[in-house]
Design a binder for these strands. Sequence first.
DNA 1: GGTATAAATAGAAGTCATTTCTATTTATAC
DNA 2: GTATAAATAGAAATGACTTCTATTTATACC
Lengths: 140, 140
Amino acid sequence: MPINNYLSILKESRLKITPRRKAVIKLFLDKGRYLGPYEIRDMLKKISLKAGLPSVYRILQELEKAGILVKVEHKNRQLYYSLCKNPHEDHHHFICRKCNKVEEVKFCNFQEISRFIEKKLKGHVERHSLHIEGLCSVCR
Amino acid sequence: MPINNYLSILKESRLKITPRRKAVIKLFLDKGRYLGPYEIRDMLKKISLKAGLPSVYRILQELEKAGILVKVEHKNRQLYYSLCKNPHEDHHHFICRKCNKVEEVKFCNFQEISRFIEKKLKGHVERHSLHIEGLCSVCR
DNA sequence: GGTATAAATAGAAGTCATTTCTATTTATAC
DNA sequence: GTATAAATAGAAATGACTTCTATTTATACC
């Protein structure tokens, strides 16, 4: 998805298109992997777009709320985000533990487990999230 | 699994059986749900077993390392643990969002997704974790 | 292209979960 | 019982993340 689509989403969400927001989206597009606040701050500094950590955190929150980014669960329990390419499809993400690349997995067979739970445990399943980790085609 | 089995695991891991460790395991057995450091500290205080937060954190880490507890992923990114009843089986957990009960789901069809990833993305899958949330049979 | 407006940002300061450190206490092997 | 290493208490430190206020800036409108 080209950057202009993301900028349109910003407009739809009544968020102004500022140099920092644009640059953050570009970073995610260019890197193709998940990113954390500190490295984003550092990358922005490199392209002479200084931004304080509070601003970075805020921008990430706003982009998540707009549906442009999604949070990534990480073992160290710190904040990471990745670009959400298909917000409306039921899909999961495959994350490379070496290069942190995030790839979409357009496949979900969760219904089976869901039925198992409804039948055996008599519970009502509302949500699920699957974290898949390994080595991508380049790193393996 | 009765408490003595867990105490045996402690011994195998060369961890001493102290009043606090025993009490923490008992808490998890009794409550049947995931617990965080602060509530554990408070519960210990109630049974006249004062423990400082650093001690609680340490005990939880040790019990996790011994395979008695597992971390629970939580939206607020704070630390929660639950008892691991079958450390050696491939299984997942179903968590009730209302009472925090943790139930084992002895079912896993992950291989399908794994094969999908190996074939389509040419990646190598190493690990996965599935988080399932809803309402348990009592709370629904 | 100016200008008013609300929104965005900077930077200092604050919050709070978690960890580290050191002195003291305690479980266990003998 | 006693020696020893391991466990604990409590103060202090760490560090990710958030809040707050003053200043700057994108945008709508003329």
